[in-house]
């Protein structure tokens, strides 16, 4: 059986009462010593900041587990759920505090941007692993757009800017095999 998918529609500018939630960017348990900060700016092809975009981060736990945990929307300050959601501010900036992922060192990122008909996917690499099919397939000039830069003097702080269009445009991803877990036979 193959059902045609429901099409995507633009997120529009008025999601603010529904989708953002308090503590959405505080994915790390409160006071956790391994907490890292990932921050940056979302900008368009003219270099202008893009506000009111929803950025969703999904990642492995520090032990490499990908099962996640409930409780992202009403965080208890202790559990690590693997999910973060932030809205870009008027200056296009966002901040996520999380734990470093175990296993492959990247965060999956979905961008829901007002003014686009559908969302975009990319990855935030904290370091490039020795072997990575995506990184190896990219022209060297584009690889750097997926690498979060450790900040000098920053305590475990990484800068990850996202450019939607034009020079230094961030690499966005498509998933031809749809990526779902294989189902029962």
């Amino acid at each position: 059986m193959s059902l045609p998918a429901t099409p995507s529609q633009t997120i529009g500018p008025f999601h603010g009462t529904a989708l953002p939630f308090p503590g959405g960017g505080e994915a790390a348990p409160v006071g956790h010593p391994d907490t890292i900060t990932v921050h940056g700016c979302l900008s368009d092809g003219d270099g202008a900041p893009v506000p009111e975009a929803l950025l969703e981060f999904w990642q492995a736990a520090p032990d490499g587990s990908l099962v996640g945990a409930p409780g992202s929307l009403r965080r208890d300050g202790a559990a690590f759920t693997g999910f973060g959601r932030v809205v870009t501010r008027d200056d296009g900036r966002y901040t996520l505090r999380t734990l470093p992922p175990g296993g492959a060192p990247y965060l999956a990122l979905c961008l829901l941007v007002p003014g686009l008909t559908r969302h975009l996917f990319t990855r935030v690499y904290l370091a490039f692993p020795e072997h990575d099919p995506l990184i190896e397939a990219l022209p060297p000039a584009r690889r750097a757009t997926l690498l979060a830069a450790p900040e000098a003097g920053g305590h475990r702080t990484y800068r990850f800017d996202i450019r939607l269009r034009g020079g230094a445009e961030t690499v966005f991803l498509a998933f031809p095999d749809r990526g779902g877990r294989p189902g029962p036979p």
Partner: peptide
């Protein structure tokens, strides 16, 4: 001005790729 110029890069996901799973 918000549309990427480059087509999205097709990525066949590894079995252990993060994107094969979802938040719960």
């Amino acid at each position: 001005e918000r549309h990427p110029l480059q087509p999205p890069v097709p990525l066949v996901l590894d079995p252990d790729a993060v994107e094969r799973r979802a938040p719960v």
